[in-house]
Amino acid sequence: MKVSLIAVGRARAPYLDDLAHYEKLLRPYVKLEQIELRDDADAEQVTRRVPDRAHCVLLAIEGPARDSVTQATWLEERRASGRDLCFVIGGADGLDLPRADERVSFGPITLPHQLARVIVLEQLYRAHRILRNEPYHH
């Protein structure tokens, strides 16, 4: 499965190390592409970068939150569908993305957008470990 992570804004230290860490951990499970867009990128610019047949997930505070086991089950359903997966994280002002197949939230807290990127990758890694009944200690 190919997973794209589209983020408005560039990753900077200290998040770069964490992103690289989870990208390495995910290599056995998915082909990951991280795409960074300018801070002022709008929905049209983001939409052009979403792969054609990918299931598009917009991170948005108004979306439902999932626990890790539910996220793993959801991931298995996406994998069984045969479609690639694309996560989109908007900029500081958020993003309305009509192209999104669904919205999901990490809860009602406000996170730095760079940290949200790390959490997306960490949750993908955790979900794959859960699906394989492997221990998770990272």
Results as ranks from 00 to 15, higher is better:
123 Q>C: 03
17 D>V: 08
117 R>P: 01
37 L>M: 07
137 H>V: 14
121 L>G: 04
5 L>G: 01
12 R>D: 14
93 D>F: 14
6 I>Y: 00
1 M>C: 02
60 A>P: 03
134 E>P: 04
112 P>R: 14
58 L>Y: 03
59 L>C: 13
61 I>F: 06
136 Y>Q: 04
118 V>K: 00
43 A>W: 12
94 G>P: 14
47 T>G: 06
38 R>P: 09
131 L>C: 08
113 H>V: 08
117 R>W: 03
64 P>S: 12
118 V>F: 03
11 A>N: 11
72 A>N: 05
29 Y>A: 13
9 G>Y: 01
72 A>Y: 04
99 R>N: 09
129 R>G: 00
65 A>P: 12
112 P>G: 07
54 A>P: 13
50 V>Y: 03
126 R>P: 00
130 I>K: 01
50 V>D: 04
48 R>P: 03
87 F>W: 12
35 I>W: 06
39 D>Y: 05
107 G>E: 01
56 C>S: 03
131 L>G: 07
77 E>H: 15
109 I>L: 13
77 E>L: 13
38 R>W: 06
65 A>S: 15
23 E>Y: 05
55 H>P: 07
101 D>Q: 02
4 S>A: 14
91 G>H: 05
107 G>S: 04
16 L>I: 15
62 E>C: 07
98 P>D: 10
1 M>Y: 07
99 R>A: 10
124 L>C: 05
65 A>E: 13
115 L>M: 13
18 D>E: 14
4 S>W: 15
87 F>V: 07
78 R>Y: 09
113 H>C: 11
76 E>Q: 15
86 C>F: 09
86 C>A: 13
103 R>W: 08
7 A>R: 10
77 E>I: 11
60 A>Y: 12
65 A>R: 09
94 G>T: 14
5 L>H: 04
43 A>P: 06
79 R>N: 06
8 V>S: 07
83 R>K: 15
13 A>F: 12
44 E>A: 15
118 V>R: 01
131 L>F: 06
87 F>R: 08
127 A>K: 01
115 L>R: 01
63 G>D: 08
16 L>S: 09
45 Q>N: 07
98 P>K: 01
31 K>W: 07
123 Q>K: 11
48 R>W: 11
37 L>C: 06
23 E>G: 10
40 D>A: 10
5 L>N: 03
48 R>M: 12
21 H>V: 06
62 E>W: 15
101 D>R: 10
109 I>G: 05
2 K>F: 08
129 R>C: 09
90 G>P: 08
89 I>H: 07
124 L>V: 08
1 M>H: 02
109 I>V: 10
36 E>I: 06
128 H>S: 00
119 I>P: 03
3 V>C: 10
16 L>F: 12
60 A>D: 15
123 Q>L: 02
127 A>W: 07
2 K>N: 08
61 I>M: 12
80 A>D: 15
66 R>M: 14
83 R>H: 10
60 A>S: 13
137 H>E: 11
120 V>Q: 00
100 A>H: 03
113 H>N: 12
81 S>Y: 06
116 A>Q: 12
106 F>R: 05
100 A>Y: 02
25 L>A: 10
81 S>A: 14
107 G>A: 08
90 G>W: 07
62 E>P: 11
121 L>N: 04
2 K>T: 13
